[in-house]
Amino acid sequence: MAKLKKWLGYALIAFVAFYLLTQPESAAGVIETGLGGLMSAAESLSRFVNALSV
């Protein structure tokens, strides 16, 4: 079972590398969307914490 997880991990890394090399614009859009979501979540958490302290 451990070998299967190891090979699946390698396959996932290979797929991501292939995607980045063949579709760089799409990959950049995915990263941009993900980072935008993280920034939005961080902003919302910041507002929540500030609201608690008032």
Rank of each mutant, 00 (worst) to 15 (best):
F15Q: 01
L38R: 04
A11R: 05
S44F: 08
S53N: 06
V54G: 09
N50C: 03
A14N: 05
A2H: 08
R47W: 04
A27F: 15
V16S: 09
E25I: 08
A17G: 02
K5M: 07
K3R: 13
M39V: 01
E43I: 06
V49R: 03
G34H: 08
M39Q: 03
A11Q: 02
L20D: 03
G34N: 10
R47N: 13
G9E: 05
L35F: 10
G37T: 09
G29H: 09
A17D: 04
L35D: 01
A14V: 12
L45P: 00
A51K: 05
L52T: 00
Q23F: 15
I13K: 12
Q23L: 07
V30E: 06
M1T: 11
V49S: 02
A14R: 11
W7Y: 12
L21V: 12
A28C: 03
W7M: 13
V49W: 03
A2I: 10
F18Y: 15
L35K: 09
M39L: 02
W7I: 11
M1Y: 09
K6V: 04
G34M: 13
A11E: 03
L45G: 01
T33G: 05
G34Y: 08
L21A: 15
A27T: 13
L45M: 02
A41D: 09
I13A: 15
F15H: 04
K3L: 14
V16N: 03
V49H: 05
G9A: 04
G37K: 14
I31S: 01
K3H: 07
